[in-house]
Amino acid sequence: MEKKATRYGYSEALIEMGAVNKNIVALDADLSRSTSSELFKNKFPERFFNIGVAEQNLLGVAAGLSLMGKIPFASTYSVFASGRAWEQLRTTICYSNLNVKIGGSHGGVLTGPDGASHQALEEFALTRVLPNLTVLVPCDFLEAKKATLAAAEIKGPVYIRLGREPLPILTTRETPFIPGQGLLMKEGKDITIIACGSLVFESLQAAVLLEKENINARVINIHTLKPLDEKIIIAAARETGAIITAEEHEIYGGLGSAVSEVVVKNYPAPVEMVGLEDTFGTSGSPEELMRFFHLKDTDIVIAVKKVLARKG
């Protein structure tokens, strides 16, 4: 399967939009090579603004540009975009409901050897509590491109979680991307695995392993963490009776929490969560870290068995 990092989907979309819409502008905070916003800069240097190592100012300047009718895409590492500049995101951008788009790259442990300081494991929790904000978590390069294109169409602030590591391309050019609508990746009746980002691939792999044991798993890709597709989650709880959430993120406050909130309010069913549990990341190769933090397909299979034992 072809692999490409989601961050490149972001810049490819920016360039495509930039060619037809003069109001598309991009900003970065001295990480344009890493986030790949440099590719936009190379095409449209007059519409690219490096703000230097100053993430709070990055979001503030983007806010001002949006007020002048621009559609600013501000990128930096997601630790900084969602953490360092959280209050700017909250008060300047979300409270004012400004048309600012944020590309948070290097999310999750797949960031690898840079270690805990650079591995955003809290951004879902930090962003999904913010009113007006749409939070997108694409699972592959193509979906990241579609998410970025969709972000420009949304009136209001959007946060897109991107990653450094090449991921298998699971979706096709034709796969629909409708913000707020979960995507059914595989039908199934015994259990539903609800995943986002890099864990969508692992979940599909897990479903294949489970078929060998006659467990028929449904797989849903929640590419929009906020607003969350409650319908698809409630239907999963009702129709399959047990749920696994899978995310390359802290389970507390992340997808696990978000899905559980919907399930307990609407159709209580047992839920098990695959993700990091109250911990920081650490240095290592991306693949090593996926194993170390139990984020692999085989870990999902273990969780499925655990939740099936609880299923009434």
Partner: peptide, 24 residues
């Protein structure tokens, strides 16, 4: 023009506004 109240944030927005005006 923009919501404020948390100190230190407004000047960045003003920079963005001025930059947007220059751009156009």
């Amino acid at each position: 023009e923009v919501s404020t109240g948390s100190l230190g944030m407004g000047l960045s927005v003003a920079v963005g506004l001025a930059l947007g005006a220059k751009l156009d």
